[in-house]
Design a protein around this nucleic acid. Structure first.
Lengths: 340, 340
DNA sequence: CCTTTTATCCAAAGCGCTTTGGATAGGTTA
DNA sequence: TAACCTATCCAAAGCGCTTTGGATAAAAGG
């Protein structure tokens, strides 16, 4: 069923039917109703391609995702997508996932833009000076960045206060009396990771605590890394008495290594984790319950979707950015240091 | 830059340029090269909407995902998407995620079909008699099902042997001498979940072991459910001496509850988990290492993408289905029952 | 040397929609 | 009653591409 046929059945022109369907004012209410009813009855729904061709709009936003078997497409991405879906479904905006081909990320973005299949793009996992971001600004293509870069040309972004998170975590541990604090976070180069390290260093420096480079780990978020690195850390002299973990997955590995050594969390080793809030992995239900810096990835994504809609509505991007604070929740996995 | 302009610059017709670009034979090799070079130089790339409108094809496949904050969009979905991306990137096929609106799943599918935005659909999480599947068959719309249904009209699917998985797990536990075996699996109604219960029941029945309905749990896959239900199970009389968990997330909760009670995995309580293979959560690295039935969700997705391409190439769906066996890997979390 | 084939290329007709620039008829105003 | 709105509808022109049905010229066949 196409517009023309529907129009014929109704003895109306395509113009009128189109207008009736799209809510234009210059059509009689009675007519509109008649059209709507008929559309429903015949199961008519506009061909999206034709519609977009005519309008120059798309009704979809783009995301570029890694296509190899890397760790990068993990539970964080899933939460993120779920959050986007939550908001975008309201406007019937779909999203287009474009896998990276030939490891050439930037050209996937370019393809996405020039193929006109998306109205906007969401960029995540930025590095400090992100080529994608400057390219998108240059191309004047609408996008929202999840995270931050050092590029100070105006663009829309949302980030959480990663520096503050690790600063708070480290400060709390210092308050408790810890002096040997390690951190196991995400890969070096990513802004979030660098910011977290900054927060960690800041806290330690403020108290005059020396920073031991062996205690700073950057790697993938996985239980295995958490386990392995904690084992390594616990064989250092002096041993760290506290660890800050960048993700729940990492924390699982850390816990395991700590237990494995016969230690208890919150006693010989304290642990603070950054919690992106996975519905299937709850920090407060852990045993012992986990001290965390918490910020829902899903909510952030929902908000980003919101911002994207604003960008698409033409709002100037200068004002579209948000920095979300991160709150420390003290639970049982952190306590004053005791000797092993 | 549009086709017309490019054609003008080259002093050729749109037809020829289009054909040159799309690899049709009726164009001189020299001309083709000239065209390709010019296209590259001017950064020309066909407007996808126009292209699709003209061709009636899309270059994207559809997936419907839950948009609420349910548990359903979790790490399994993420792995699945990653697997699809791995294969579809080769053919530059994108995927379109359509969130469910108003909780009306079937109409999202219909919208997806009639809006002509995707060439095919991937359906996952089928129930025993799945309305979506019969609808898609009726509509004669290409799709591949991840999982199985009882609908015996021809369609393409890939499933793992869920029944066999739980049958093997239960049998192994019975072999070890367990007589009180519980299972904590996914939500009732889903085929995979029903199949697993079938396997479990079959194993127990074959050995004449009575089935205790309190020992069969169906719920979301999460550590919290695993924890809570295990606590409940361990307060039953008689206590189960073994638990089969449907997912790694569940297993984390189970482990925690077991430890919490002062028990050891593989001693007072044995645990076998179905492992969908998450890169960030490794069964063999757990302590104690985890006995699993293992089947990579990611590989399955990659294969499904492969099948989808075949479906799109017009191969009859009758022969496009695969049932993947699941292998039991015995590790330390399962052992003979000992008294608490 | 003329006819037939083959290799290239092109003009124009869609694909299904939105939107521009009127038409038409009934109602208002003076 | 004539001149002017207003509300409602329509025909036709794109949107940028692919594809059909030739045209043209060079090569081959007789």
């Amino acid at each position: 069923m196409k517009l023309k046929e529907l129009a014929e059945k109704l003895n109306l022109s395509q113009t009128t039917v189109s207008r009736a369907l799209n809510g234009y004012p210059e059509v009689n209410e009675a007519t509109r109703e008649r059209v709507n009813k008929a559309a429903l009855k015949f199961g008519y729904s506009a061909n999206a391609n034709a519609r977009r061709l005519a309008m120059g709009r798309v009704g979809a936003i783009g995301l570029v995702i890694p296509a190899d078997s890397s760790q990068r497409f993990g539970p964080h991405t899933a939460e993120f997508l779920a959050g986007l879906a939550e908001r975008l479904s309201r406007d019937e905006i779909d999203f287009l996932l474009s896998p990276i081909v030939d490891n050439d990320e930037i050209s996937v973005y370019k393809r996405l833009i020039s193929s006109k299949r998306v109205d906007a793009i969401i960029v995540s996992g930025p590095v400090l000076v992100d080529e994608r971001v400057s390219m998108l600004i240059d191309a004047n293509f609408p996008f929202v960045l999840h995270g931050r870069t050092n590029i100070d040309r105006p663009h829309a972004w949302l980030d959480i206060d990663n520096q503050g998170a690790f600063y708070q975590a480290a400060s709390h541990l210092l308050d408790l009396g810890h002096r040997h604090i390690a951190m196991i976070d995400g890969l070096r180069g990513f802004t979030f990771s660098e910011h977290r390290e900054l927060g960690y260093r800041q806290a330690l420096s403020e108290r005059g605590v020396e920073i031991d480079p062996r205690f700073i780990v950057h790697d993938y978020f996985s239980d295995e890394i958490g386990f392995r690195e904690t084992q390594r850390l616990l064989s250092c002299t002096p041993q760290p008495t506290a660890i800050i973990a960048g993700s729940m997955m990492t924390a699982l590995g850390v816990s395991r290594a700590v237990r494995n050594k016969g230690y208890q969390l919150g006693k010989q080793v304290s642990l603070i984790t950054h919690d992106d809030v996975f519905p299937y992995l709850n920090a407060s239900n852990m045993v012992p319950s986990m001290t965390t810096t918490r910020s829902s990835m899903r909510s952030a994504a929902t908000r980003i979707a919101e911002m994207l809609v604003r960008v698409l509505d033409g709002e100037p991007v200068d004002n579209i950015h948000e920095l979300w604070p991160v709150e420390l929740t003290v639970r049982q996995s952190s306590g004053p240091p005791i000797s092993g």
